[in-house]
Design a protein around this nucleic acid. Structure first.
Lengths: 236, 236
DNA sequence: CACAAGCAAGAGCAGTGCTCTCTTTTCGGT
DNA sequence: ACCGAAAAGAGAGCACTGCTCTTGCTTGTG
């Protein structure tokens, strides 16, 4: 385990989380654009230059927040998935929609954090390697759900057009070597489309268009699951 | 028509477009976050305060760019649609995919402008009324395509769940009173999902996941059209 | 032709990210 | 127990930002 050496190291991690917490507060209040290192430092009673001992730049702080956000939405989705599996182990479509609903709920509750990870990438920012594992959590959950359904009752998918065959093979090899390529493709489609729906809601594109967002999203999530091959009810 | 009164008014609109052009240049080069009024003014050989005669604030400049961007992607989509209709008047699914491809192509060519309109909304920004009409152009095109298909050959759609019926009625009434509610719902789904796919590609979520983006998107666009009820080929 | 409106310029304010130097505190090896 | 090294904080400062205000100049119009 990570043995904390002394009071100094302990203080360091405490201050680091305090900085992130305050930054997250400002992020939630004003958005990423108005997140200011100086304001964070001021609120914590320290001088701005001291903050640079913990995060070498504003971008690094943002990266830390991004990783945390990916982990938060991933954890929310995993919890919802686990609970749905416990409730009805073979209702794969219900597991799928539970994941979708959890993602949407988290996004609606944390719009600015959601924007940080699924909105426009900031400045000339290219995602550091540290972010890719947390970023994959929701996607992997979708894959796991589909895999369970496939193993348990099979999936129903439209055939792949010839042009996509090589890409589909490659994708399946990278993503889930045990699954049929058509399923891998369908999963990536559904993955992107899920976040398209959530983004449109969070970013206000549904304003004055969709009113009953809950019902709308519930139907959308179920259709996404079907398009990913999940059957509506277990086979007899 | 808009008669330009004198040299002064003429100069005003010329300078206004020059400012927008330069701003667009910086936007394309560095992204919205680094777009600086002072830098724009500097590049145009004027002093920063003079720029405020044309745009009362940075946000107003951004709003102008947002409207232009919506119009640009809308125009690209409309052109592609018109051309597809000319080529094969009854190939509704081809019209649909032409619109999708045009949107994607514009987005890939203008990632920062795309981010401006379909990425995270800036600061505490709420879209002014002027943006809603341009923003609707692509959506209206999708509706028009589906309407033509519906009138010409009908559409094939899954039934709506009961819970969504009221929202579907309302949506259809607002969006396209002549179309069946199930089609209106399917169109909004497809609309959001289309931009989900494009956003994931433009914002880098497909990096190290999807390689053959053209083939991938082509298939996705066609499936979106099918999910919106469009038939693969005209009925005999 | 005079006058008011439109426009440009410059200085200035408050705020930002970030760097540098200087001082204080803390820790580990002898 | 001490002493040098490393870590942390404080403060000043640089270059930049959006935006405001005042001062003149230019231009179109009564």
């Amino acid at each position: 385990m990570t043995t904390v050496r002394g009071a100094r190291a302990r203080a360091r991690i405490e201050i680091t989380v305090a900085i992130k917490d305050e930054a997250r507060r400002q992020l939630a209040a004003e958005g990423a654009a108005k997140l200011s290192l100086r304001a964070v430092a001021r609120e914590l009673g320290m001088v701005s230059s001291a903050l640079y001992r913990y995060f070498p730049s504003r971008d690094e702080l943002l990266t830390a927040l991004i990783i945390d956000a990916y982990d938060a939405v991933g954890a929310a989705a995993e919890t919802a998935h686990a609970s749905a599996v416990r409730t009805a182990p073979r209702a794969h479509l219900a597991h799928w929609t539970a994941v979708c609903r959890a993602v949407r709920a988290w996004a609606v509750d944390h719009p600015h954090e959601y924007a940080l990870i699924y909105g426009s990438p900031v400045p000339g920012y290219t995602a550091p390697q540290d972010t890719v594992a947390p970023a994959a959590r929701v996607g992997l959950l979708l894959v796991a759900t589909a895999r369970a359904a496939w193993q348990d009752e099979g999936v129903a998918l439209p055939p792949l057009p010839d042009g996509l065959a090589p890409e589909a093979e490659r994708l399946a090899a990278d993503l889930a070597p045990d699954l049929p390529p058509a399923l891998a493709v369908a999963l990536v489609f559904a993955w992107a489309q899920l976040f398209g729906l959530v983004s449109f809601e969070v970013f206000g594109q549904f304003n004055r268009v969709v009113e009953d967002r809950d019902a709308f999203f519930a139907t959308a999530a179920e259709r996404l699951g079907r398009e990913a091959g999940l059957l509506s009810r277990p086979r007899p």
